[in-house]
Amino acid sequence: MWKNGQMKARRRVYDAVVEDHPGPDPDPTLEPVGHARRAATGTVGAAGCHEQAGRSVRTGAETVRRWLEVLSGFYFGFLVRPWFRNVSRSLRKEPKWFLRDWSGVRGNGAKAETFVACHLLKAVEGWTDLGLGAFQLCYLRDKAGREVDFVVVRDGAPWFLVEVKNQETTIAPSLSYFQEQIGAPFAFQVVLEADYVEADCFARPGTPKVVPAKPFLSQLF
C-alpha cells in the first residue's frame, strides 16, 4: 500500500510531468522531465526518439531514455522497439515513441500511426494476459531506410505486419520486402479512410493485402 506521503509525491510527479500542471509550489527537479514530455510529443512515431528528443531539449539520449521510462510508468506513452531477427542490416537500438492519447498528436500521418499503434498494443497486452501466448509489438527498419510501421510477434515468431496509411491503396514495397525476409504469414496495409467491408482479414495467410481499418481493428480483440 502507498503511504500518504508517497501518494502525494506521486501525485505531484503526475501533475507536473503528465498533466503539465506543476501547481503553486513547483518542484524544480521535475522541470526537465516536463521538457522531455513536450519534446517526446514532437517525436511520435519516429525512430531514434531518444536522440531527437534529446536534441530538442539539449540533453543526452541516455537522460531522455530515463525520462521516457518515467512517462511510460504513468501510461503517458509507450515505446515500440525494432524487430531485427532475420532482418538484413536492421536497426537494433532505436525505439519509436507513441502517446497513449492519439487524439493529441499533430499531423495526419503521425496521428493515424499512433491510433493504430494504440489498438495493436491493447490487443497484444490483452492476448498475453489471457494466456494465448507471449506477444510483442515491434517495428521493422533497415539501414537502407526501408520501414514497416509494425510487426506483431507471437511466441518469438513474426505473425503479421502492419503498414498504416490514410488513403493510399497501392501496396508499399517495404511490406512485401520484409514479409519475405522474416516469413510472417500475414501482412496488411491498413487504410484508415477506406470504407468498411465485411471480410475476415485473417482468413488466409499470403502476400500483402489492403484492408480497411474498421474491420481490421475490430477483429483484433
Rank of each mutant, 00 (worst) to 15 (best):
A39T: 08
L71C: 02
F186G: 14
V17F: 03
Q167L: 03
H21E: 12
E113Y: 04
P212V: 09
R81C: 09
A213G: 06
F78K: 14
Q52Y: 02
E163C: 03
K3I: 04
G54D: 09
F186R: 06
R66A: 10
F78D: 09
K3V: 04
R141M: 13
R66G: 02
K96F: 09
F150T: 08
A61E: 11
G104V: 10
Q52T: 02
R66S: 07
A172D: 10
F84A: 15
D25M: 12
D155P: 06
L120K: 10
Q6V: 01
T114N: 15
M7Q: 00
E69R: 05
R10S: 04
C201T: 08
L91Y: 10
P28N: 13
Q52V: 01
L140I: 10
F150G: 12
P95S: 12
V190L: 11
E193A: 06
P185A: 12
L30A: 01
C118Q: 01
L71E: 07
A53W: 02
S176F: 08
T169P: 14
P32H: 07
G77Q: 07
A203Y: 01
N166R: 12
W159I: 00
A144E: 10
R10G: 04
A46R: 08
M7I: 07
R100F: 13
T59D: 08
L137N: 05
E62Q: 12
A39D: 03
C118Y: 01
E168V: 04
R38N: 05
D25A: 15
L91P: 03
